[in-house]
């Protein structure tokens, strides 16, 4: 079988500014509190990311990175070790993505299910050592408007004049660079063969 590539979904790298949220073990309830699971769609999830930290007693917590104007428009989240642990709910990655996060750089590891859920939304999650992450967070805090570059082909993160290798599960990396991370698009790609198949399925034509 010829290797399939879906061009419009290819993600070979992410460029943009960073937003630091480096505490370790932040779980999906921290990211998106359970009370918002009641909503029947994901539409508003972007508004609820870290909402309990961002607002205390009805007042905006100015220094929270997700409120800080310095990080406005940032699309690369710098997260701590074991980011996204806890419940497997999809609301957390949906919320981050809808807030504007396009990629996550985490320390050491990321929670498995969360990692997979991010991948299926087209949000690459990559990990570096905790020491390395601390350096990146430091740099971004000093230079919030400086561009970061995540290169999925070379597995390389560039910040300032520093380059650092990162880890990402090979299956996920492959699905990003070939554009196959989105199941719907892949299945849709095979529409002609599906139609031909359905035309021949006997019971679909029983009158």
């Amino acid at each position: 079988m010829k290797k399939l590539v879906i061009k419009e979904n290819m993600i070979v790298g992410i460029k943009g500014t960073g937003i630091p949220k480096p505490q370790p073990n932040l779980n999906t309830d921290d990211i998106l509190p359970a009370r918002f699971l009641k909503e029947i769609t994901f539409s508003n999830m972007g508004n609820y990311v870290f909402i309990d930290e961002r607002y205390k007693d009805g007042k905006e917590v100015k220094e929270h990175p997700f409120n800080d104007p310095n990080y406005k428009g940032a699309n690369i989240l710098l997260a701590g070790e074991n980011f996204g642990c806890g419940s497997s709910r999809e609301h957390a990655p949906q919320g981050l993505h809808r807030f504007g996060i396009d990629a996550i750089v985490a320390g050491e590891s990321m929670a498995e299910i969360f990692w997979g859920n991010c991948a299926s939304l087209g949000v690459p999650g990559v990990t570096v050592s905790n020491e390395e992450l601390a350096k990146v967070v430091d740099y971004v805090t000093q230079n919030p408007k400086s561009q970061l570059d995540i290169d999925l082909k070379k597995k390389m993160l560039t910040y300032g004049n520093q380059k650092v290798k990162f880890n990402i599960p090979e299956g996920q990396r492959e699905s990003f660079v070939t554009g196959l991370w989105d199941v719907v698009t892949v299945l849709k790609h095979y529409e002609p063969r599906t139609d031909a198949f359905a035309n021949k399925l006997d019971y679909l034509s029983f009158l």
């Binding site: 399939l4 299945l187 095979y190 063969r193 599906t194 198949f197 019971y203």
Partner: peptide, 18 residues
């Protein structure tokens, strides 16, 4: 068997639902 449309690049199969 009757409902397997074909293979997918990641090793899974595409399965038709009636």
């Amino acid at each position: 068997k009757k409902h397997v449309v074909g293979k997918l690049p990641d090793g899974r199969v595409q399965f038709f639902i009636g």
